[in-house]
Structures are given as structure tokens and as C-alpha cells.
């Protein structure tokens, strides 16, 4: 191979890849409008993005999988812990993570900023991004539940309880979150039917409930988790 051939490889390789990349960039810009629902980028969402950057959240948390790996991913945080869950954690990290061996800093985020953050996370949560992350995927969660049932010897309802993020707020035997009440004896307080209504629409049973309605659960999951909770006496 002569030096001329080598130089040609260099020029052709670079140009081919460069031109392809720029063309795809142009098309990506076009498609991201729809994929990300860019029409819903309200001033509040953009303000939320600025808040997210102001407190350097992204150097502990990941979002769309990028950032620090020190704290949970924020892509589907609204679906996972609900708006009230976000408010509580951002405003009172020292209480929310009192029992955790890993802490979150108290940054004195204002109420308005928290609302902006929630708007931002809600927008990000609706980006059509190939169903990532898997742990928050609606399609795949049942697989995790199946594994828990098969390998962990759990009842299907207990598997739903563990895998659907209930324990982000609630606890059983002292394990789990502190934001919602412990559910060790919830079966004494509420019967099967009320638990089912509570999960679907908390405010229908308790007008002061802070828990978000669990719209993501399938009928089967709701039935199983209700049976499980009603049995906790």
C-alpha cells in the first residue's frame, strides 16, 4: 500500500462517516420534535431544566441514563414516586433519607423551583425513548415479578408490592420508605374492596391522601396486590 492509498483511506473514511453523521443529525432534529413532544416544552418545563442544572442534580442522578451513577435515574421519576414523592424528597432530604446509608443534600430548593422540576420530570418521563430504563418499563416489570415469584417464593401479590415501587414510600417490617405509612397491619384497617379503591384512587377513601393513583397496574396486578395487602393483619 502506498502513502497515497493510505491518505485516500483517511479522506474517504472520514468524509463518508462525517456526511452520514450530519445527514442523520439533520433527520434526528426533525424526528425529535415528535419523539420528545417538543410542542409541550412549556416555559415551566424549561425553567425546571434550569433548576435541575442550577443544583447540579445531574452529577449524582442520571437522567436518560447519563450523569453521576450515585443516585437513581430521573427519567421516569414521576411515574415511580409521584409528584408528592418528589416534593417530599427534594424539600426534606434529611427526613426522606434518615434511614438510608446514602444521603441527599439539603439544598433549600424553593417551592416554585420544585414545581418547575416536577414539570420538567413529567415532560422527560413522556419522551419516547425505546422503553428505557428497564426497571420502570411497563412491559417488562411483570417479568421481574415472575422471577420474584419463582425464585423468591413470594406470593404474586407480594411480588407486585416489591416490584411496583410500593416500598419507595411504604414499609413492611421496618424495610422500605418512610414517606407513606407502614403497611404491616393494613388488613386490619381496610377491607379488600377499600384497599382496591384506595390503590386506584386514594382520595376516594381518604381525601387527604398524598399517594398518587396507581394507574399503571394491570387488573391482574391490582387483584393480586390487594389480596396480599388485605391479608396483612
Amino acid at each position: 500500500m502506498s502513502q497515497k492509498t493510505a491518505f485516500r483511506i483517511f479522506i474517504i473514511g472520514t468524509l463518508a462517516s462525517g456526511v452520514l453523521f450530519l445527514a442523520l443529525t439533520w433527520d434526528t432534529h426533525r424526528q425529535v420534535e415528535t419523539l420528545s413532544h417538543a410542542d409541550k416544552l412549556s416555559p415551566q418545563v424549561i425553567a425546571g431544566k434550569r433548576t435541575f442544572e442550577k443544583y447540579n442534580c445531574n452529577d449524582c442522578h442520571t437522567i436518560l441514563g447519563f450523569g453521576g451513577y450515585y443516585a437513581p435515574d430521573m427519567t421516569r421519576v414521576v411515574q415511580r414516586v409521584g409528584e408528592e414523592g418528589i416534593r417530599f424528597r427534594v424539600k426534606n432530604p434529611e427526613r426522606a433519607f434518615a434511614d438510608s446509608w446514602r444521603k441527599m443534600p439539603q439544598q433549600h430548593v424553593s417551592d416554585a423551583e420544585v414545581e418547575n422540576l416536577i414539570a420538567f420530570f413529567t415532560w422527560v418521563g413522556n419522551i419516547n425513548n425505546g422503553d428505557w430504563p428497564p426497571q420502570d418499563s411497563k412491559k417488562r416489570m411483570t417479568r421481574g415479578e415472575e422471577i420474584a415469584v419463582a425464585a423468591g417464593g413470594l406470593s404474586p401479590g407480594a411480588a407486585v408490592f416489591q416490584n411496583r415501587g410500593c416500598m419507595n414510600c411504604h414499609s413492611l417490617h421496618g424495610k422500605g420508605g418512610t414517606f407513606g405509612p407502614p403497611l404491616d397491619t393494613v388488613g386490619r384497617r381496610l377491607d379488600l374492596e377499600r384497599i382496591e379503591h384506595y390503590i386506584r384512587n386514594p382520595k376516594s377513601i381518604n381525601p387527604n391522601a398524598k399517594m398518587p393513583p396507581q394507574k399503571d397496574l394491570s387488573e391482574k396486578e391490582l387483584e393480586e396486590v390487594t389480596k396480599f395487602l388485605a391479608g396483612l393483619k
Binding site: 434526528t28 424526528q31 425529535v32 436518560l64 441514563g65 419522551i127 430504563p133
Partner: peptide, 9 residues
């Protein structure tokens, strides 16, 4: 892959 860009990526 997972940022909300087109699938061909």
C-alpha cells in the same frame, strides 16, 4: 439508543 432519538441509531 435511549435518549429519544430515532430508532435507526
Amino acid at each position: 439508543y435511549w435518549i429519544g432519538a430515532p430508532k435507526y441509531w
